[in-house]
Design a protein around this nucleic acid. Structure first.
Length: 450
DNA sequence: AAGGGGGACAACCGCATCGCA
DNA sequence: TTGCGATGCGGTTGTCCCCCT
């Protein structure tokens, strides 16, 4: 075998591959013996590499038969995809990539493969590991995971999930599910590229009994200028990445509000409620409806091309400092909060669970009066000091991140202004988070660097 | 110096989806 | 339409290394 493989793979590089047995995992080419598991050796890598060069990707189960490699097809595919692919980008994530991951996660949730499709040279596994590690850190610190300006996306994502669940739960109800599952081809979204701001749509209906208070508060916390122009995973997804059928809900839920008014959505032209980002939180009129609003503002308008993505996230234009640059700002997590945060810790979809938990905590705390100290808001206050500081903007965002999904209505929720440490400044609201690095965002970045 | 905890990374497992016969 | 193999994805676990005490 004359293939030279450069593997930055820590584990592999440490493996002694001199033993001839290891080249095939100690299994003969007949494949009669059990397949090998565990770390790959350089020799195995070479075999796999050679195979792919000769036969191309795919047909992974044939690798074992044809090359004698004692690895199952899945293992081969994974090894190739995560380590041997020539287009892989090695090394740590750049701040831009980190930022992008956060944004993508806010939009997509734990869709690692799709996120990887947005990050050339990066693998889903890499992103997943990065995120999980990051989650753990934030969880331990009892801190929000999304920066304020991305909270909105998180809430959008949550709504999408909710809508998805709603749809499946009502699968037998054609009135609901029938309108929620159409697959919108990417081309349709292209045609729907709009020149207006991404979100929120200026007008929307808010269900009175849903998690949408997240969005409302997020809007207010953010202003509704997105920190970026948005990305389109539809248009940029790697061809090899398939969109799972179940994911169509994601698109459909959004496309639905654009292409028609399934689910009783208000379209942009059906103005039951006017959202005005200059208005105080409490003044938003929220008529009853069970229609999730996500569709209005999220991906359908988030789906425009990726053309500006780099420009919007690159260092020059990015309002956010390098995650590393603020690494030392955070010294220690707020005492006592990490424990509470770890109970219902964000596990899988992570942040959304955290949002739920946080919201419950918040809700309980607000109901139980402000004298209780272990509230999120208080924790934030304690953490960042002056509750009236500009960081209160952050607090509001944190609040938005930890909004309830358990049916508490918006009216049940205290306004941001009444939350401990929460003071929504309208001037902040009106300010695009994508244009200036407010202390909130910077503070978040500091946390994210923890 | 030793031990423990946490981070980073790699790999496996189970399930979902797709494509094809 | 159905069954089955191939593939992809997300969650989880295991391992190693580094740092701190």
């Amino acid at each position: 075998m004359s293939i030279t493989i450069e593997t930055n793979d820590m584990m592999t590089s440490k493996v002694d591959v001199d033993s001839p047995d290891e080249a095939t995992g100690g299994v003969n080419a007949g494949g009669s013996e059990p397949l090998k598991k565990g770390p790959w050796t350089s020799a195995e890598d070479a075999i796999l590499m050679d195979y792919v060069m000769k036969h191309g990707e795919g047909n992974w189960n044939a690798v074992q038969k044809q090359s004698g490699l004692a690895r199952c097809g899945k293992s081969c595919r994974l090894r190739w995809a995560n380590h041997l692919r020539p287009d892989l980008k090695k090394g740590a994530f750049t701040p831009e990539e980190e930022r992008q991951i956060v944004e993508l996660h806010a939009k997509m949730g734990n869709k690692w493969a799709r996120m990887a499709a947005e990050l050339p040279g990066r693998t889903d596994n890499e992103i997943k590991n990065y995120w999980n590690t990051r989650i753990k850190r934030h969880q331990r610190a009892g801190l929000p995971v999304y920066p304020p300006d991305i909270c909105f996306l998180a809430s959008q994502n949550k709504q999408n999930e909710e809508l998805s669940a709603f749809s499946s739960a009502d699968a037998q109800n054609p009135d609901v599910s029938g309108t929620n599952n159409f697959d919108i081809p990417a081309v349709e979204f292209k045609n729907l590229e709009l020149n207006r701001p991404l979100y929120p749509p200026p007008l929307f209906e808010i269900p009175s009994n849903s998690l949408l208070d997240i969005t409302v508060s997020s809007f207010l916390a953010q202003g509704h200028s997105p920190p970026y122009n948005s990305t389109s995973f539809l248009s940029t997804m790697h061809p090899s990445k398939r969109i799972r059928g179940s994911e169509s809900v994601f698109f459909g839920s959004n496309g639905g509000s654009l292409l028609g008014q399934p689910l009783g959505f208000s379209s942009y032209n059906n103005h039951n409620v006017t959202y005005d980002d200059h208005r105080p939180f409490s003044s938003i009129v929220i008529p009853g409806s069970h229609a999730p609003l996500n569709g209005n503002s999220s991906s359908s308008e988030e789906l425009p091309s990726l053309q500006n993505q780099t420009a919007n996230w690159g260092p020059p234009s990015s309002p956010f400092p390098s995650l590393e640059s603020v690494d030392t700002l955070i010294q220690s997590p707020p005492a006592g909060h990490s424990e509470s945060g770890s109970d219902l810790s964000p596990r899988n979809s992570g942040l959304l669970d955290a949002m739920l938990y946080g919201s419950q905590t918040m809700k309980a705390s607000t109901h139980n009066s402000h004298q209780e100290n272990e509230t999120f808001g208080d924790a934030v206050d304690n953490y960042y000091g002056d509750p009236l500081s500009p960081l209160s903007h952050f607090t509001a965002s944190a609040f938005s991140e930890y909004a309830p999904i358990d049916g508490s209505s918006l009216h049940e929720f205290p306004s941001l202004a009444t939350m401990p440490g929460c003071k929504v400044k309208q001037e902040n609201v009106a300010t695009s988070s994508g244009q200036a690095c407010g202390r909130d965002s910077c503070a978040w970045d500091a946390m994210s660097a923890m």
